[in-house]
Design a protein around this nucleic acid. Structure first.
Lengths: 340, 340
DNA sequence: ACGCTTCGAGAAAACGCTTTCTCATTATTT
DNA sequence: AAATAATGAGAAAGCGTTTTCTCGAAGCGT
C-alpha cells in the first residue's frame, strides 16, 4: 500500500481527532451536510482550518465515483484550431468546477484509440478530436468511451453528440467568392490525407465543380502546417491558378510568405483564402480572407454537451444528428479581382 | 457511497472470479509480479482480455499514492507562449507515461494560488506559471505545493527548481541591435503591470540606459496582446521613436498591423522588435526581428526537472539557482537602418 | 521419513474519503 | 409520566486497487 515514508499529508482522521469527533462527522461538515449540530460543526471547521485540511481528491473520487475532470484528445496541440478548442472547453468546464486533462496523439492515428481509452478511464467524460481514426474503429470504440462528445466526427450511436463544422459549405463559399471576383482558374491546397475535415472540403469542392463546370479547379497536395503552405508556393505557381483555396489559415499564411519571397503580389497576382479564421488571420499582410469558424465557442459547446451527458439531461436540443457550425466568409485583403 | 445504478464497470473482482483466483493474484499478474505460477498467470491474462478488463486508475492512484499526472497553471491559454510551454511539457511528460492537467487562471492573480493548490492535490506535481502572484505569497505557498517547478519565478526554497528566461538580457540585445542600426530614439511598449517578466525587461532597460546615456528611451503603456499592440500605434507615432521594442511578438504584430494601416513603413520609417519568437514571427510581413526563446524546450525542461523531483533524483545539475535560458537575437525584416 | 527452507496464493489491511446503518439522546405527544 | 418521534453522531461498509501477512504445500538435505 501507499508510500509510508515522509510526513504523511494531513487527512480527515487528523481533523476528527483534533475536533474530538468521528471522520464521518468531519466529512459531513466538509460537505455541508446540515444534520450536524452547529457548535460541533464550528469546532470541526476550526480544526480543519487550523490544520489547513484539504480533502484528498483521489479518495473522494473513489468514494464518489467521479473525478470532476474531463479529458480531451487532440491530434496536435501546436495547431491553433485545437488550441482554441481546448481553451474554449477548459474555460467553460472551469465555470462548472471541472478540470481538463489533455492527451495529444501527435497525429498518430493508432495512438488515438489508446489515449482516448486511458484518458476516459481517468475522467468523467471525453471530448474526442480524432480526425484520423477509421470510421469502423470509432464506431466500435464509442460505447466504451461514453460519455463522449465528438468533434468533427459522427457515429451512429445516438448517445454521442457531435459538433461538426460544415467545411464543405465553407469551402464552397470561398470558391464562390473567388469566382465572384472573376477568377476562373482555382487551386485547392489539400490537407493531410485521410483527414476527415479534408474529406469534407473535397466533397464540397466536388459539389462546387458540378455547379460551375466552367471553372478550372486544380488539386494540389499540401498539409496542414505553415511549412506545408510555404513549400507549395512553387507548385501553386506552376498550376497557373489565380485563386488559391488553402486547406486552412496556417497553410494560407505559409503560402503568403512563400509567394512574398518570390515577389508575387497578393492579391494583385494571386488571391488566397484560408480557413478557420485563427486570431492571426486578421493581422497578416495582406489580411487573410477566410471562412470563420467559431472555434472557441465550439469548445465551449463541447463542454455544454458533455455537461448534459454527465448530468443525464435528456439532450434537450439537437438529439438527432450533429450540431453543425456554419463557417462564415470573412472577406479581407488577400483576395481581389482576377487580373484582366 | 458510489453510484449504485447502471451496469457497473468491470473490476478486478470479476476477473478474479472468472479465473478462479483471488483479486490479489489478479493484481500481481497485471503488475508483472513473477511470483505467480505461469499457468495461473496465463489463465488470469486470458480472463482479463476476455472481459476486456482495464484497471481503474482512481483505485490504483489511491493505493499507490500517485496519479501519474502533473498539473500546470498558466495565466492565459490563448497566449502562444503558454501554449508552447504546455505543448513541450505535455509531450515530454507523455514520453514518460505522465499526463497533464491544465488550469487557466485567466490572468486573475487571486485565482493562481487556489488553482495551484487544487491542481497540485490532484496530481503528483505542479508546474507553475504565475506571473502575477506576489513574491511573499509565492514564498509561503511553495512548500505546500512541492514537488513544483517554477517558470519565470524564483523562491528561496532550494527544492523548487526555477526555469527563467533572461528577459533583461534579451531586451538589451534588442535595444543594442536597434542602436547598432543607428536608432537613437527608442520606445518600449511595456507589458502588463505587475507582470514579473515585464519587470525583468524594465530592469534590463534600466541597465541599458545606464550604458547608453545618449539614447532617448520612451516608456509606453501597452499590454501583452495583439490588440494592445494594435491600439498603441498612435502612441508610438506620437513618441517620435524610430525603434520600437514591443513587449512580445504578439504586441509587435499588432503594432505592425496598426502602423501598416496608417501607411507607416516598417522598417523604412520605423523599426520594430518583438520577443519570444513565436512560430508566426517568421511569417509576418515584414518578418519579425525578435529575441528567440526556446519555449517548447523550456516546457520540456520543466518536465525533466519535475521528473527528477518525483523520482527523488538529487538534482544533479543546477542545484543552486535557477536554470536560465538566454534569448537569442533573431534579426529579420522588421528592423533596418534609421532614416538619415 | 522428518524438519527446514522456498514458493505461491489467499485473507486481510491499507489508501482517504462518503454514506448507510444503527443507536443513544433529547424533544414531543397523549 | 410513559411512550413515541425526531435528531445527531459514531461504527462500519463500501469505492477498486496494491501489498503485507500468513500459511499450506511442495522441494530438499540429511
Amino acid at each position: 500500500m501507499g508510500r509510508r515514508a515522509t510526513t504523511r499529508r494531513i487527512g480527515i482522521a487528523d481533523v476528527a481527532l483534533k475536533a474530538g469527533v468521528s471522520h464521518a462527522t468531519v466529512s459531513r461538515v466538509m460537505n455541508g451536510n446540515f444534520t450536524v449540530d452547529a457548535t460541533i460543526a464550528e469546532r470541526v471547521r476550526a480544526a480543519a482550518t487550523e490544520l489547513n485540511y484539504q480533502p484528498n481528491p483521489v479518495g473522494r473520487s473513489l468514494a464518489l465515483g467521479k473525478t470532476d475532470t474531463i479529458g480531451i484528445v487532440v491530434p496536435d496541440l501546436s495547431n491553433p484550431t485545437f488550441q482554441a478548442i481546448l481553451r474554449g472547453l477548459s474555460m467553460a468546464a472551469a465555470q462548472d468546477g471541472y478540470r481538463v486533462l489533455i492527451a495529444d496523439s501527435s497525429e498518430v492515428s493508432s495512438e488515438e484509440a489508446i489515449l482516448a481509452g486511458e484518458a476516459r478511464r481517468r475522467c468523467d467524460g471525453l471530448v474526442l478530436c480524432a480526425p484520423r481514426m477509421g470510421d469502423a474503429e470509432l464506431e466500435e470504440l464509442a460505447p466504451s468511451l461514453h460519455p463522449m462528445v465528438l468533434i468533427n466526427r459522427t457515429t451512429t450511436h445516438a448517445s454521442v453528440p457531435s459538433l461538426m463544422v460544415d467545411y464543405g459549405q465553407g469551402i464552397q463559399e470561398l470558391a464562390g467568392h473567388l469566382v465572384g471576383l472573376g477568377h476562373t482558374r482555382l487551386a485547392f491546397l489539400a490537407g493531410p490525407e485521410g483527414s476527415a475535415s479534408n474529406a469534407l472540403r473535397l466533397a464540397g469542392l466536388e459539389k462546387f465543380k458540378a455547379g460551375h463546370p466552367e471553372i478550372d479547379l486544380h488539386m494540389l497536395d499540401g498539409g496542414s502546417s505553415f511549412e506545408a503552405g510555404h513549400e507549395s508556393a512553387d507548385a501553386v505557381l506552376a498550376s497557373g491558378a489565380t485563386g488559391i483555396l488553402a486547406f486552412n489559415d496556417l497553410v494560407a499564411m505559409g503560402l503568403l510568405s512563400g509567394l512574398h519571397e518570390r515577389g508575387i503580389r497578393v492579391p494583385g497576382d494571386v488571391s488566397i483564402t484560408g480557413f478557420d479564421d485563427i486570431p492571426f488571420a486578421r493581422y497578416t499582410t495582406p489580411t487573410l480572407t477566410t471562412a470563420a469558424v467559431p472555434i472557441t465557442e465550439l469548445g465551449q459547446q463541447a463542454w455544454h454537451r458533455m455537461r448534459d451527458l454527465i448530468r443525464h439531461v435528456p439532450s434537450d436540443a439537437a438529439n438527432e444528428g450533429p450540431t453543425v457550425f456554419q463557417p462564415q466568409l470573412e472577406s479581407r485583403g488577400s483576395t481581389g479581382p482576377a487580373k484582366a
